[in-house]
């Protein structure tokens, strides 16, 4: 049984339909990458899984149980965590408080604690008392990832974690992915940076205009397949 699955997922913003029956599957200890251009529906898919957008109950399954109508706070308490697009740190909280808020209201056992997050991103230990938003973009992304890890999630949703960052910083961030996987999380990584995503993913889904247009393992997908699925066959 898949750890997390979407079945014919449809999402709308008012009259605008953003997703048209999306099916994806995440297995235990797996990393999948969702790639696609701007407006493909990747972030909407993440927000739908996380419960920020409500769906039909059976369109999102966690451990085979429908969670599509559950609110975000309930889905998070079932072991799903999200690194949102744009990082979304809390401006009135320090770095350490931003990390601690990831465990709100729960006694959570597991690998990830303040100390192990600081070991993963040592710069955060030095900046622990600074306001979260006073950090550089890369450091803020580290806080956002650390904050999600603090809940010791089984499923980690990473939405555009390389967006707006310098290549050297992106490399640093992606270096953490194997350690996050080794600690027991399964990941869904949404990316526009195809090479980066494919390098860490076990399977890849390509989206265009609210639909999955291609899926497979990185070694079975050719450059042309991905190009066509990403931009449309006419390009």
């Amino acid at each position: 049984m898949a750890l997390l699955q979407t079945h014919g997922l449809v999402a709308r913003y008012g009259d605008f339909q953003a997703l048209f029956g999306v099916d994806i599957m995440l297995n235990e200890a797996e990393t999948i990458a969702i790639i696609g251009a701007n407006g493909a529906g990747k972030t909407t898919l993440m927000r739908s899984i996380a419960g920020v957008l409500r769906n039909d109950a059976a369109s999102v399954l966690l451990d085979g149980k429908p969670i599509g109508t559950r609110p975000a706070e309930e889905i998070m308490s079932q072991g799903v965590a999200m690194v949102p697009e744009g990082r979304k740190l809390f401006p009135s909280l320090s770095v350490e408080e931003n990390l601690l808020i990831g465990t709100y209201g729960r006694k959570i056992g597991g690998h990830w604690t303040l100390e192990t997050v600081y070991d993963l991103f040592p710069i955060l230990r030095e900046r622990r008392h600074s306001p979260g938003t006073a950090l550089s973009g890369g450091q803020q992304q580290m806080v956002a990832i650390g904050r999600a890890l603090m809940s010791n999630p089984r499923v980690l949703l990473c939405d555009e974690i390389s967006l707006g960052l310098a290549p050297v910083v992106i490399k640093d961030i992606y270096k953490a992915i194997p350690q996050i996987k080794a600690a027991g999380a399964s990941l869904i990584i949404v990316e526009q940076d195809i090479a980066q995503a494919i390098a860490v993913a076990d399977r890849v889904y390509c989206m265009m205009e609210g639909r999955v247009t291609l899926s497979g393992t990185p070694d079975t997908l050719s450059r042309d397949d991905i190009h066509n699925a990403y931009f449309g066959a006419g390009h």
């Binding site: 996380a50 419960g51 920020v52 609110p71 975000a72 706070e73 998070m76 308490s77 965590a81 999200m82 949102p84 979304k88 809390f90 401006p91 009135s92 909280l93 408080e97 601690l100 808020i101 990831g102 709100y104 209201g105 729960r106 904050r147 809940s151």
Partner: peptide, 18 residues
């Protein structure tokens, strides 16, 4: 902390289980 986080951004706070 939850008061301040929710005041900053209620949607992201809900992603923290709040």
């Amino acid at each position: 902390r939850a008061f301040r986080a929710t005041s900053d951004d209620a949607t992201t706070a809900s992603l923290m289980g709040i």
